[in-house]
Design a protein around this nucleic acid. Structure first.
Lengths: 250, 250
DNA sequence: CCAAAAGTGTTAACAGTACACCCATGG
DNA sequence: CCATGGGTGTACTGTTAACACTTTTGG
């Protein structure tokens, strides 16, 4: 047995092509916060299975032609699905891989492994939602009012994990800034925390929590004030886009 | 166009089978700690590509026959690969999904999407490693001495992310207990932290950090003491397996 | 006895919380 | 003027870090 023979044998045995391949999709848990109320984007399925049921937006990952073209990356597939569903400009939303779900039987048709992502959408851009290709309608649903058991496939578990992730991550990463407009008040930022954590924050202590970010120049004063018709108008702030302190690593 | 026709059209259009499918694998980052030294398990690849190079153990996910048999779950596939490589008894190691890597071109043969897992192995069981099917040899390599750039595929990135994950998670979850023997001393537990975090801990403060777990009955006294030949012998502790306080949710 | 490692006690710094109180605006 | 929300100051609490000190073993 020559070395070339041995190598050829391995090539055959471990050629990925000889294994049955699952389908791979991306699913999106798209969040926004409005008036301290955490919402997520659901679609009504136009096609079976679960036709007419609520589900997460998503779609298949382009895998190319099996030859030189290996298709699109997972991140790109997720961004593409997000764009199809929301028509938002590129880079205006935060997108992060969440977890991969691949239980046999989670899709009755065939083995489907889905790489779930979650996205954070600024509320001033959240109106730009539209129904994608495979959806009859797309709608923002309050997490507090959502009955998870009505979701198709295993999407309830995906949503639960996404909630867990953002509720944990908001405490030690700057993801909250992805859920406020470019110019925001401390009250608006606080309401993002209240919507995600599902509890109230003391306004004065909340302010102090971000005092250091102000002195360090991460949070910058923006011109003007904002009045809500009643009470003292609030100062307006902004964060420098691309500030290293705002980078979030998965 | 009847409703049935429309439904049939959707079935064709969104039938997962009509899309090109990628191969799906699981790769494992297997950790252990010995003498405050964090080690990970690498194999030498027997087959191309990267034949002879260091790589993470892993293998293809069984996807069934494309019909009623949908194959094995991702968790099961990861546990199976771990067993092939280490021969450890089921349930003796901690296994958690890390991240999914699917850049086109990461495997030159075809589109391969890999779901990476990391595992934590108790040092008293870490000797039970063996080379799996596709490996010439398996070896524990110190993270501090490892040159990441020598790893095959995109395994350097996978290892980096696994390190990041355990270095973060050890601070707010009880994963460290998965890296000590059933009966352990505070010094041994401390060395797990030192190996993972890559810094020294004050022994007295470290002890206090776990004082509450002792009073709450999570950490229990074990009979006997342990002498290292020099100095005062240390008390021995154990944790109740299956204690809810030790459960770690991904 | 001495070196080494286990284990205890004391103090300071800091972040989070509760809460009293002042400020500025619209009506 | 007063109701409402923005904004400041203060006191208390629990956690962590630094470090001096005591205890118990092997050699």
């Amino acid at each position: 047995v020559t070395e070339a023979d041995e190598e050829a044998a391995w090539l055959v045995r471990y050629n990925p092509g000889r294994w049955a391949r699952p389908s791979v999709t991306v699913d999106l848990v798209v969040f926004t916060v409005r008036n301290a109320d955490l919402k997520l984007l659901l679609i009504r399925r136009k096609a079976p299975p679960h036709r007419g049921g609520w589900a997460l937006p998503g779609g298949f990952v382009g895998a190319g032609d099996g030859g030189d073209d290996q298709g699109e990356s997972l991140d790109v597939a997720a961004a593409r699905e997000l764009k199809e569903e929301t028509a938002l400009p590129d880079g205006s939303s935060y997108l992060e891989q969440l977890y991969t779900f691949g239980e046999p039987g989670r899709d009755p048709r065939t083995r489907v492994i889905t790489v779930a992502y979650y996205a954070l959408i600024r509320p001033d851009l959240a109106l730009l939602v539209r129904a994608g290709d495979d959806a009859a309608e797309a709608e923002w649903v309050s997490v507090s009012e959502l009955d998870l058991s009505t979701l198709a496939f295993d999407h309830a578990r995906i949503v639960e994990m996404a909630l867990e992730r953002i509720r944990g991550k908001i405490d030690y990463t700057p993801i909250a800034f992805r859920l406020v407009p470019e110019h925001f008040t401390m009250a608006e930022l606080r309401q993002v925390y209240e919507g995600i954590k599902g509890r109230l924050y003391d306004a004065s202590n909340f302010r102090r929590r971000f005092a250091r970010m102000k002195t360090e120049g991460v949070i910058l004063p923006a011109p003007g004030r904002r009045s809500h018709g009643r009470g003292r108008p609030a100062k307006v702030f902004r964060v420098e886009v691309g500030t290293s302190a705002l980078e979030v690593e998965p």
